[in-house]
């Protein structure tokens, strides 16, 4: 008697994948994701602190108004940048935080449009906020990476 034991053919098909094979090195990619996440988090935290500590919230509101944006946005954007930045650095719900921060950068890109594309132009061209915006979308697609807190919350042991 001969026995041939095979995995269920449906086991592979049960989880549909967009690509048949991973196109990244799964050993190193989680650390690349973490590097992007912490960098973005620091950048958001710095911009949030700048708005709160240096410009102050009323000052930021004035600045927004001078750009033709609703002044009240300052009181939403600055806390979002602070909390979002900290959450990104902690790796807490990275995907959704990155997605939530994306519109801020779309508006930033839009407000920098009149300054030309080169980031070194006077008042800053749009290429930096545009790249920043793309990076948040990339982070949304990537998720937490290594050392994220979300995973620890999901698996309390």
């Amino acid at each position: 008697m001969k026995l041939t034991i095979r995995d269920m053919p449906t086991a592979a098909a049960s989880r549909p994948r967009r690509l048949a094979k991973p196109t990244i090195d799964l050993d190193t990619a989680p650390y690349a994701i973490t590097l992007l996440r912490v960098s973005l988090g620091l950048l958001f935290l710095a911009h949030g602190l700048l708005k709160v500590m240096v410009f102050t919230l009323p000052g930021t509101a004035q600045f927004f108004a001078s750009l033709g944006l609703p002044a009240g946005m300052a009181y939403v954007v600055a806390p979002m940048e602070l909390i979002g930045g900290l959450m990104l650095m902690a790796g807490l719900y990275t995907r959704w935080v990155a997605l939530a921060l994306f519109p801020i950068l779309l508006v930033a890109t839009y407000t920098h449009l009149p300054n030309g594309w080169l980031f070194a132009h006077e008042n800053g061209g749009w290429e930096f906020p545009a790249f920043f915006a793309v990076a948040t979308v990339v982070q949304f697609l990537l998720g937490d990476g290594a050392y994220g807190l979300t995973q620890r919350l999901r698996l309390p042991r």
């Binding site: 008697m1 001969k2 026995l3 041939t4 034991i5 095979r6 995995d7 269920m8 053919p9």
Partner: peptide
């Protein structure tokens, strides 16, 4: 009899 112990659902082909 032969004891076949499976840890997960498998397809088993038996030939005599």
């Amino acid at each position: 009899p032969l004891a076949l112990e499976l840890e997960a659902t498998k397809q088993v082909e038996i030939s005599s």
